[in-house]
């Protein structure tokens, strides 16, 4: 028996979410009195692999195969299933992000394992196996019982404080069976920016809405992001107007994010906007209208003109940095 974690790396370095996942999985392994096995797919060196041990992995299964350099959902699902079978995994933990949403449902069918999607806490009980997850786009939660023998959980972003839990993990390499007829997709042109903080990974996000007035008014938002090491985001009308790129649109029909700090300037706080940001740890609202609904969601608020408040905020942050 074991709890299996699917980790993610970026150019050979684990993403922060991988440590959260391993830490979360090792807590479940304790509840089940079993061990934590972490799966790494890709070219990750041993000293990096060993880091997973620091967060509670007992064993690391490393799969290095050039055929896996591009993500084919069906192929990856098969690899995870092979490892889960080999390790007798009863629970599989995956991130609730693009990768997790692509793989977890397929794996659920392959292993006939019930899926708890977007869980944000440890299971409240293992018998019956009961998880807590967001529903109605964050307006409520549900307690969900997973009845199948194997369970798959995808962990909501930024919902679990990871802690170091030094174990010396063993590393094992694994050669999965990869039949050629499994490969049905091909990747052509790739366009990606590097060196920019990804909105979905960012710890701090500075976001602007229609109250910013025009595309040429984004200077203070970008500067504040720069001094705080933050990513930038926007409301839907702002990206619809073409003031900002579509990648920045957050909300029900855009990106769903959960940073530690979300600063909303000139955003009214419509329910569909909140659906994308309500899991943020701390929300700051800057708005001229004291009755704007964003203040109901915010932890800190300033009633004022963003074009005046933001430059002062930049100044004040610079003073402490």
């Amino acid at each position: 028996m074991s709890v299996l974690v699917f980790t993610e790396n970026w150019d050979g370095k684990f993403k922060k979410v991988s440590f959260e996942l391993v830490s979360y999985a090792s807590k479940i392994a304790e509840m089940l009195n079993t061990q934590t096995v972490a799966l790494s797919i890709g070219n990750v060196q041993d000293d990096e692999l060993n880091k997973l041990g620091n967060y509670g992995a007992d064993k690391i299964v490393s799969v290095k195969n050039d055929k896996l350099n591009i993500l084919d959902n069906q192929v990856y699902t098969s690899v995870i299933a092979q490892v889960a079978e080999k390790e007798g995994s009863k629970v599989v933990i995956i991130a609730q992000n693009n990768m997790g949403k692509a793989l977890a449902p397929r794996l659920s069918v392959k292993l006939k394992a019930g899926l708890g999607a977007g869980v944000s806490k440890l299971p409240s009980s293992v018998e019956p196996f009961t998880v807590f997850k967001k529903v109605y786009s964050g307006k409520a939660y549900s307690n969900l019982v997973i009845k199948s023998d194997i369970k798959i959980l995808t962990l909501a972003q930024n919902s679990f404080e990871f802690e170091e839990n030094n174990k010396s993990a063993s590393i094992e390499s694994f050669e999965p069976t990869l039949n050629d007829d499994l490969f049905k997709t091909k990747v052509g042109n790739v366009e990606k920016q590097t060196g920019k903080i990804l909105l979905t990974d960012a710890e701090i996000v500075i976001s602007g809405g229609r109250g910013m007035k025009a595309s040429d008014q984004w200077g203070p938002i970008e500067e504040l992001a720069e001094v705080l090491g933050a990513a930038t985001a926007c409301s839907r009308p702002v990206s619809d107007e073409g003031w900002r790129p579509h990648e920045e649109h957050t909300g029900q029909t855009g990106k769903i994010i959960a940073p530690n700090l979300y600063i909303a300037a000139g955003i009214s706080g419509a329910i569909q906007h909140l659906a994308g940001i309500s899991s943020s740890k701390c929300i700051v609202a800057i708005n001229t209208d004291k009755d704007a609904p964003i203040f109901e969601a915010a932890n800190y608020g300033i009633i004022g003109d963003a074009s005046k408040v933001l430059p002062e905020l930049i100044q004040a942050v610079k003073e402490i940095k």
């Binding site: 959902n73 069906q74 699902t77 609730q96 949403k101 692509a102 793989l103 977890a104 449902p105 397929r106 794996l107 659920s108 069918v109 392959k110 899926l115 999607a117 977007g118 997850k133 967001k134 529903v135 109605y136 786009s137 549900s142 995808t154 029900q252």
Partner: peptide
């Protein structure tokens, strides 16, 4: 927009 599972599509393809 209700159960937020992000699941049905992937599951159909695997089936």
């Amino acid at each position: 927009a209700d159960y937020n599972g992000s699941a049905v599509g992937g599951m159909v393809s695997e089936f």
